[in-house]
């Protein structure tokens, strides 16, 4: 695949996706990607790239190929709620005025 002076198979290492947790109790969120040859280096690289300014208390790294994503054509069946499922939402339920539920 590569041309020029570089040995065949010279790569920039596999791609990893990075998730950071900004503070205890918060969810891990996608921060971006890094390249790394293995999990330990991916963790270190992610730490160096995405937490320099104290942005995280915890890191996850995942090989990019391990991620399965929904595709836009799935959006209808996957994500658009039917109008008949309002019972999933708290506003559907009546309680006497003035009563605290929590």
């Amino acid at each position: 695949m590569t041309q020029g002076n570089h040995p065949v198979g010279d790569t920039q290492w596999p791609l990893w996706e990075v998730f950071t947790q900004s503070a205890p109790g918060k969810p891990h969120e996608h921060a971006g990607s890094v390249h790394a040859p293995d999990a330990e280096m991916a963790l270190q690289n992610a730490r160096d790239v995405y937490t320099r300014r104290g942005e995280a208390v915890s890191l996850w790294v995942v090989p990019a190929e391990a991620i399965t994503a929904s595709s836009p054509s799935d959006a209808g069946p996957f994500f658009e709620p039917g109008n008949d499922k309002a019972y999933r939402h708290p506003q559907f339920y009546n309680v006497p005025r003035g009563v605290k539920v929590f």
Binding site: H6, P7, T11, Q12, P37, D38, A39
Partner: peptide, 16 residues
């Protein structure tokens, strides 16, 4: 190049 190759060779041996 040899550095990148070394890291990949190690990972291949260890499966990371």
């Amino acid at each position: 190049a040899w550095v990148r190759a070394a890291a990949e060779a190690y990972a291949a041996k260890r499966n990371g």
